[in-house]
Design a protein around this nucleic acid. Sequence first.
DNA 1: CATACATCCTCTAGCCACTATAGGAGCAAG
DNA 2: CTTGCTCCTATAGTGGCTAGAGGATGTATG
Lengths: 144, 144
Amino acid sequence: MHHGIAIGKVSEAAGVKIPTIRYYEQIGLLAPDRTDGNRRTYANEDIERLTFIRHSRELGFDIDEIRTLLSLQDHPHQSCHEADTIAKVRLVEVKRKIASLIALKAELERMVEGCSHGRVETCRVIEILADHGKCVFHDSVAAA
Amino acid sequence: MHHGIAIGKVSEAAGVKIPTIRYYEQIGLLAPDRTDGNRRTYANEDIERLTFIRHSRELGFDIDEIRTLLSLQDHPHQSCHEADTIAKVRLVEVKRKIASLIALKAELERMVEGCSHGRVETCRVIEILADHGKCVFHDSVAAA
DNA sequence: CATACATCCTCTAGCCACTATAGGAGCAAG
DNA sequence: CTTGCTCCTATAGTGGCTAGAGGATGTATG
C-alpha cells in the first residue's frame, strides 16, 4: 500500500517543478525510491528537503552552499559554525548588491529624467550609455 | 600602414575581454575588418561601440536590448522613444530587485543574529531555511 | 476487460552571456 | 632564425534549470 508520494504531488507540496526535482536528484541532492513500474516515490522528509532547497535558492544560496547546508542539517550534532559563515558571506554579497543596484537606479533615473523625448541624437539615455565620463554609476560601483 | 587596432589593444581600451569581443562579433554586434594574415582590425568607433556595450551590460541591459540601443545609436535621427522605454522598463526591474534584496537582507540578518553559535540542531540559520513559516522574506517577496 | 487520458519515464538539446581549452598560425625583436 | 608574444578557429563547459520527443505506466470509466 504505502507507495510513498508521487513526484507530481511532491512538486505541488514543495513548490518545486517536476523537472527541477529530477534535476536535483541528478546532481545528488535527493535520492527517492522507485516503484516496480520505475516511478519515483517520495517520503514527507523529501518534501521538507525540497522546501529547504527552494527556500535556500530563493535566498540566493547556490547549489554548492545548499549541499553544505543540507549535509549540516543531516548531521545536527555538528557545530553550526559553517552554516553561520555561509549565511554571513551571503549577507555581505547581498549588501553589496543592494548598494550597486541603488547606484544603478540613480543612473537609470538620471537617464530617464534627462530624456527630452526627442531624437536619438539628443537623447540622454543613449548619450550616457555612449559616454563613459557622464556616468555616475560606473565609478561608484567600480570602487565597491 | 594604417592597419587599424589589434584586438588586444581594443580589449584593453574598452575594458572587454578578448573572447567576449569575439563573442559579440559572432552574435552580430560588431563587424571588424581583417588583415592579410586574418587578424581582426578595429577602428576607434569600435572601441566606442564596445564601451557602449560594456556600459549597457553593467547597467543590466540584456543583449537584445543592447542590440536595439545600438541600432538607435546608428540612426540618430529616429525618435528616442524606444530607448526611453527600454530604460524605463529596466528601472522598474531594478526597483523591484532592490525591494526584494532588502527583504532578503533582513531575513539573512535575522538568521545570522539569531544564531547562538552552538550545534546545528539549535541553529537559527538552518531552522529558518527548513521552516517556511518562520521566514519573513518569502511572503514579502511573493507579494511583490 | 478495453480504452481513454493523466501522469510518469529517459534522453537530448536549449537557454544566457560568457569563459576555457586545445592546437595551431602570424609577427616583431634580438 | 629563433624566441616568445599575440592572435586564430573550433569545441566544450559554466549554473540552474527548462523544453521537447517518444514511449511506458497507472487509473477512472464504459
